[in-house]
Structures are given as C-alpha cells and as structure tokens.
Simulated scan of single mutants.
Amino acid sequence: MSTPTTVGDRSAGKPIHETNPVLTIDHVSIDYLAQRTVHAVKDVSLTLGRGEILGLAGESGCGKSTLAYAINRLLKPPAVVSSGTISFHSREGYSIDLGALQGEELRQFRWDRISMVFQGAMNSLNPVISIQAQLEDVFSTHRPELSKKERREKCGELLERVGVDRSRLKSFPHELSGGMRQRVMIAMAMALDPQVMIMDEPTTALDVVVQREILREITRLRAELGFAVIFITHDLPLLLEISDRIAVMKEGEIVELGQALDVYTKPQHEYTKRLLASFPSLTGDRGDFARGTHGKGTDA
C-alpha cells in the first residue's frame, strides 16, 4: 500500500485533497440517451489532491471509464453529462471549469494539464509509424516552438525516464514487448508535464512480473515529477499497493471512499467486503492477498 507521506499536510493535520486539490468532481451524473436512458454515473463527487494517487475500483460496466472520459471531455453522443461540474485547479493558482472549455482552448488543455493512458493502451500506438514520430507529434502539436533537434532530444529523455533505451525511438510498435509499449504510452502521457494523469486499466493484459514493474515506474515517476494520478481498475489488490486513497464504484455510484489501508482493514460497504473476499489468498487466509501487509506474505 502506498504511504501518502508526499500527499498529506502534516502541519495542518489535514489530507492534501482538502488543503491542496488539483481536481474537483462535484455531483456529476452522466447518462446515455438511447431508446432507454442509461444512468451510467450517478451523482459522483470526488476530490483529487495534488500529487495523490487515487484508485478507482469496481467491476466492468460500473461507470469508471465513463467518468474518466468525462473528466477529459472525451464523451461522445449519446453520452451526456446531465448534471454537476468538474474543475481543474492549476498549480499557478487559478481554476478552470472543464465544462466551459470549447474549441482551441479545450484542445490546448488536453494532454497539457490532464493526460490519459487509455484502456487497451498497448494497442493504441499506430503500427505503421515509428515510436519517435508518434512521440514527436505530441510536441509538434502542443509545443510548436521547439526545433526538430529539441523534439528529438525530449523524446529520448522521455523513453529513458520510463526505463526504455532511446535507441528504441526508431522501432515500430510490433518490435516492442507489451511492457515496453505500455511504457511508451506512459511516456507519451507525461510528455507535456501534466498535473493529472488518468490511467484506465493500464496494466490489463500484462503478466504479473511486467505489471509489477509498471507499478513501480508509476510510483517512482509520481514521486519524481509530482503529478496526481487517477488509477482505474477492477483489480482491488493492485490498488491497495499503489494508492493513497481508494474509491469503490458500483452501478455508477461511489459506495466507499477512504485511505487504502482503511479500505483493506476496515471496509464499510458490503460490496467492498465482497470484492476483497473474491480474490485468492497468497497466505492461506481468506482475502489476505496484499503483499507485505501486517507482516504477512512476501514482497515480489
């Protein structure tokens, strides 16, 4: 479980999501206006602290990805935000109502302030374009003042930051392993030094060893660069290891929200208890799956 030493305000005795928020989701509801209206997200309120890792857990279809797309204004019809507001609080001291952004303002905001690693990100890379060209496109679009040499240097630095040799810039996606492609996607998401990174099931389809490496990279980069993370997955044990706080979502609603350790040791909602009990044990005790917790298990 992540230790939230970097995300708490010890002097004030209050958590960082209260004293220094970077993102506020206030009573947001999202509907799909089909023949029968589907209420995908129902009156969700969350606050993300600067530098915090907030885990969002829940079964498939509970509305996790729909909420993530709403934050980045990526929802398309028939999805609509039927109520509520989402506000971004810049480190420069001003706030932005994301619902009010339009056109060029919205294009410039995306990826620059809030970036996203999409579900199935390993398959998001263009198979016929080199890694270098795809990374450089981010800088060409958002940092047009950079020279070609500067763009290339930044691309190399990005790859090395996520543990990939810069010689791989010339490679095509099919020449990389699944873990390397995922690292490239993370590098692309952090290219413009965003203040919030949304990760939607970023380790799905990776084997457990590579998954562990990716999680270590995310926590290391968070500590190094200070961005906040919304980490979305159905894998609750994974969230217990990486998150400062965890929100549990069921049928479009947040049914439990608390510190990761509290969610693990003192779950309040029956759905959270069922989620915790559904994972196989590493030690023989039912539900005791978290590595290194209470002295049990082994650290991989």
Rank of each mutant, 00 (worst) to 15 (best):
D207R: 08
P21Y: 10
G55E: 03
D43N: 04
I114P: 08
I214S: 04
P15C: 12
I30Q: 02
D112W: 09
S140Q: 14
S115N: 09
A290Y: 10
L215M: 11
A187E: 02
M199Y: 08
H89M: 01
D285M: 15
V44H: 10
K148S: 11
H39I: 11
F118T: 09
I246T: 02
T37Q: 07
R161V: 10
N126G: 14
G58W: 02
R73D: 05
L158Y: 00
T66A: 07
I131R: 01
P4L: 15
S278N: 10
A228S: 15
D112L: 13
R113G: 06
E241N: 09
R10I: 11
A223C: 12
K266A: 12
F88M: 05
D97V: 09
L146W: 03
Y271G: 04
Y94V: 00
A223T: 14
L240G: 06
G84R: 06
Q132V: 06
L169A: 02
I186P: 01
A228H: 15
K42G: 08
L215R: 09
D165G: 11
A189K: 02
F172R: 07
D235G: 08
R161K: 13
T6N: 15
L33S: 15
G55M: 03
S130I: 04
R107P: 06
S177E: 14
S147A: 06
S124A: 14
H89P: 00
R110H: 04
S243K: 08
A57I: 07
P202V: 10
A191V: 01
P4G: 12
T141I: 09
G178I: 00
L275A: 06
Q119P: 05
A223H: 13
T19S: 12
M1T: 06
G156Q: 00
D97Q: 11
D97W: 05
R107N: 10
T298F: 10
V128P: 07
L106I: 01
H39F: 04
D299L: 13
A260R: 01
K273A: 11
R220P: 09
L48G: 07
L125E: 08
E270K: 11
E104G: 02
A70K: 13
V210N: 02
D235P: 02
V210H: 06
W111T: 09
L240R: 01
L23E: 02
S171H: 10
R151Q: 05
L125W: 03
F172G: 12
L238Y: 00
Q259R: 13
L257W: 05
R73H: 02
P173A: 07
S177K: 11
N123Q: 03
A277R: 12
L67S: 10
I254G: 01
G55F: 02
E59F: 07
S167G: 11
M188H: 02
L158A: 00
A277T: 12
L75Q: 03
S45C: 12
N123T: 04
E150P: 00
Y32A: 15
G179H: 05
T19L: 04
R212K: 13
G103A: 08
T66C: 08
T233Q: 03
L275D: 05
S45V: 14
V162C: 04
V81I: 15
T5Y: 15
V162F: 01
R291D: 07
N126W: 13
L98Y: 04
M197E: 10
Q182Y: 04
Y32W: 12
G226D: 08
V28C: 13
G297L: 01
R291E: 11
S87D: 15
E213Q: 13
E145I: 10
Q182L: 02
E213A: 13
A79F: 05
Q182P: 00
R113P: 11
